[in-house]
């Protein structure tokens, strides 16, 4: 989904951080700042050894919500390009889950918009994580109040 310098991708396959940075910069000399965030699968959560994550989503609704979040960020700050990529399916420890990249003329807007997008993605976008533990147990994760509080703080 590409719209008004906004790129939204929900996909199973991995993404290349360098390539995504290059796309944010290609033919874009208006902006001097690029802020990015990448979230990866870590090997531990709540004192459990984690070996993987299964990511489920609500097709179409998720993409619409991510687009809305990107548009909100663009209405709050003067931004150039916004890219949000989120993976779905089975992911192993160390794999990339999510990428947010934002460009703007100066760093402040890019930093803030990047954080804003992640904070709202966490509480609004229809993704669900199921953790796979080293002992074979599988567990749907609960939403965290701290994530809601962080989004509410904007």
């Amino acid at each position: 989904m590409t719209n008004d310098n906004i790129v939204i991708k929900v996909q199973q396959q991995d993404f290349d951080l360098g390539a995504e940075m290059n796309k944010l910069h290609q033919n874009n000399v208006d902006d001097g700042a690029t802020a990015t965030f990448c979230g990866r699968v870590r090997n531990n959560n709540l004192e459990q050894d984690v070996i993987g994550l299964y990511l489920e989503h609500y097709p179409q609704m998720t993409e619409k919500q991510l687009l809305q979040i990107a548009q909100q960020a663009k209405s709050k700050w003067h931004l150039g390009r916004v890219c949000i990529i989120h993976r779905i399916g089975m992911l192993n420890v160390g794999e990339q889950i999510v990428f947010v990249g934002v460009t703007s003329k100066h760093r402040q807007s890019a930093f803030m918009a990047c954080e804003f997008i992640m904070d709202f993605l966490k509480v609004k976008a229809t993704f669900w994580k199921k953790e796979v533990h080293a002992n074979g147990q599988k567990l749907w994760l609960d939403a965290k109040q701290s994530d809601q509080n962080k989004a509410n703080s904007w």
């Binding site: 989120h86 999510v98 993605l121 509480v123 229809t126 749907w140 939403a143 994530d147």
Partner: peptide
């Protein structure tokens, strides 16, 4: 109409 638990992406 879709029903689901609170979201946990990111």
């Amino acid at each position: 109409v879709a029903f689901f638990p609170p979201v946990t992406g990111g």
